[in-house]
Design a protein around this nucleic acid. Structure first.
Length: 136
DNA sequence: ATTCTGACA
DNA sequence: TGTCAGAA
């Protein structure tokens, strides 16, 4: 299966929390600061893309180093809006395979971030995410 | 069960 | 920033 597009909003704040290690409070706060601009589903539910997660990880590093928000904004490219709602019936046949999705997102995040973090955590949480997503 | 906003013993 | 409330 093709990797999930980096700009496709498919992750809930809960998944992002576990992927980044940031608290829900921090993730929402950074949005208030204009550091990230997740898409909204149903008008209020935040949906993040892989790009957003990578961006959050960079913000996390800088925040931990007590960088002033003004400088973080200056360094990072202006927030890019995620695209396409999570639910999209692609023209073709099958349901994406969890293994592939996990591998794809993990790989994309790794190439996007130089920091070290356990991929096991990611796989576990993403597996949970897609399990509920495709749950019956 | 999850997420959202607003608020502060 | 954590955390709790009240609603969706």
């Amino acid at each position: 299966m093709d990797p999930v597009p980096r700009d496709m909003a498919v992750l809930t704040i809960g998944i992002v929390r576990q992927l980044t290690g940031l608290s829900l409070r921090q993730i929402r706060y950074y949005e208030e600061l204009g550091l990230v601009s997740p898409l909204r589903s149903n008008g209020e539910q935040r949906l993040y893309s892989i790009n957003d997660v990578a961006r959050l990880l960079q913000i996390k590093d800088m925040m931990d180093q007590e960088y002033p928000v003004s400088q973080i904004k200056r360094v990072l490219a202006p927030p890019k809006k995620p695209v396409q709602p999570a639910v999209q019936p692609l023209p073709s046949e099958r349901e994406p395979d969890d293994k592939d999705l996990l591998r794809g997102i993990r790989d994309q995040l790794q190439t996007r971030t130089e920091r070290s973090w356990s991929t096991s955590i990611i796989e576990g949480q993403l597996a949970q995410f897609y399990r509920n997503k495709n749950k019956k």
